[in-house]
Computed example of a mutant assay.
Amino acid sequence: MRIVAATDSDYEFIREHDHHIAEHLILPKIRGNEIYILQNEDGSIIGWMRYGYFWDNTPFLNMIWIDEAYRSKGLGKEAVLFWEDEMKKQGFQGVMTSTMANEEAQHFYRRLGYRDAGCLLLEDEPLEILLTKTLASKGG
Rank of each mutant, 00 (worst) to 15 (best):
F60C: 08
D56Y: 09
K77G: 06
G94Q: 15
S72V: 00
E68K: 04
N102G: 04
F60M: 12
V95H: 04
W65K: 05
W65D: 07
W55A: 14
N57E: 14
Y53L: 15
G76N: 10
Y70V: 00
A101L: 07
N57C: 15
P59A: 07
Q93C: 12
D67F: 01
Y53W: 15
F54G: 14
W65N: 04
S98G: 03
A101Q: 10
I64E: 06
A69P: 00
E86R: 10
W83M: 01
P59C: 11
G74A: 10
A69G: 00
E78Y: 14
M100F: 09
V80H: 13
D56T: 11
I46R: 03
D67R: 02
K89N: 11
A79D: 02
V95A: 08
T97P: 12
A69C: 00
G94T: 14
K73E: 00
T99K: 08
Q93R: 12
M87C: 08
W55R: 11
K88C: 02
T58A: 12
K77E: 11
G76A: 06
G94Y: 08
L61G: 08
A79E: 07
Q90K: 10
S98D: 10
M96N: 11
Y51P: 09
D56V: 15
F60I: 05
S98L: 08
M63Q: 06
Q90N: 04
W65I: 06
F82W: 11
A79V: 01
I46S: 02
D56R: 13
Y53V: 14
L61T: 03
Q93K: 13
W48P: 11
D56L: 15
K88N: 03
N57R: 13
W65Y: 12
G76H: 05
G91Y: 11
K73V: 00
R50D: 10
W83A: 05
T58Q: 09
E84V: 02
E86W: 02
F92D: 11
E84K: 03
N102T: 12
D56C: 15
T58D: 10
G74L: 05
D67V: 00
K77I: 00
Y70M: 01
G94R: 15
M63P: 03
L75M: 09
F82K: 03
F60W: 12
M87V: 06
Y53M: 15
A101Y: 06
T99H: 10
E68V: 03
K89S: 13
W55H: 10
D56F: 13
E86M: 12
Q93L: 12
N57K: 15
P59R: 10
Y53A: 14
G76L: 06
